[in-house]
Design a protein around this nucleic acid. Structure first.
Lengths: 159, 159
DNA sequence: TATTGACCTGAACCATAGTTCAGGTCCCAG
DNA sequence: CTGGGACCTGAACTATGGTTCAGGTCAATA
């Protein structure tokens, strides 16, 4: 009888319960439920309506965690995961493609922060923080309208 | 009669209504109310219970905006503003001190993001994103407990 | 078979940073 | 002295990323 299905014992272990995924991924059960509602992960249900996950959900959860550390909102992570092939399990090149997108994102944000730091350094030098003069207070979109009103009088009056 | 208080005309303009502060700072009236509830700014009330702001509120709001761009949460901004002298108007050196704290903060976060980018680059190379091996998935605090259970079997089984 | 721990759902709640709305007041210009 | 825009308050709502709780079910073990 134990000879009848030699690999069946192993494959029973292949599907993970939500608690197992939580324990192994370090993510709370409630978070896994949440990710599932948002479409980031999926599960099969047993006859008793309990979730069973394929092992590769661990890689997805790992990707979610990494992406969040990179600062990507869940909605974008969901989008990215949505580009994974539905017909086959994602391979190394699939994950590589997604990771590269995040790298581009990270590069951009680092550059932005560096610009910000430089601006802030200038601002420390000039000590201004003035609404009308300071680059920091004016993210190069606001201001430019120079409507009526005693602007100079009210904005940059000395203290 | 107009000679009686020569500078009084100017000083009437010195106090700003909430609408004026909103217009000049680019921050919504509702946000100004919100900042006031959180103790980031303060106002005098007229006999009719309307807010009147001293001009230097503009500099505070400017500081709040800049700080938010740097990524500082309002609670920390409030703390920082709380260190300003209560007895006199803040001067250039006061603002400089606060800005320098944010610079330190920015430096740290840039460094952190750069480390993250390097890790991610490695990860793109190895294509792993494995929960047990990947530095990214394990922010150097989790894991380390190696409790019972078929860990190797379940975590890093090949796809 | 009974029990206990793991699981299920939906609703409510947390923080952050506000906005929107309803219902009412203030105050300035004509 | 009246009309209307600016102002007031508190409550409810937005989005993000979840957690907590209540009430009930599933499943494996003793």
């Amino acid at each position: 009888m134990p000879e009848q299905a030699p690999e069946r014992v192993a494959w029973d272990h292949v599907e993970l319960t939500v608690g197992e995924v939580a324990a192994r991924s370090g993510v709370a059960v409630s978070a896994l439920h949440f990710y599932e509602r948002r479409g980031l992960i999926a599960s099969r249900r047993t006859s008793g309506n309990q979730r069973r996950y394929r092992r590769d959900v661990l890689r997805r959860v790992s990707f979610i965690r990494v992406s969040q550390r990179v600062g990507i909102p869940l909605a974008r992570i969901a989008e990215a995961l949505g580009t994974l092939p539905a017909d086959r399990a994602p391979n190394v090149r699939d994950w590589e493609r997604l990771s590269k997108a995040w790298r581009t994102d990270l590069d951009a944000r680092i550059e932005q922060l560096e610009r910000l730091r430089d601006d802030l350094t200038d601002c420390i030098g000039c000590g201004c923080l003035s609404l009308s003069r300071c680059v920091l207070a004016n993210p190069h979109d606001a201001l430019g309208h120079d409507g009526p009103g005693p602007r100079r009088l009210l904005v940059d009056e000395p203290e």
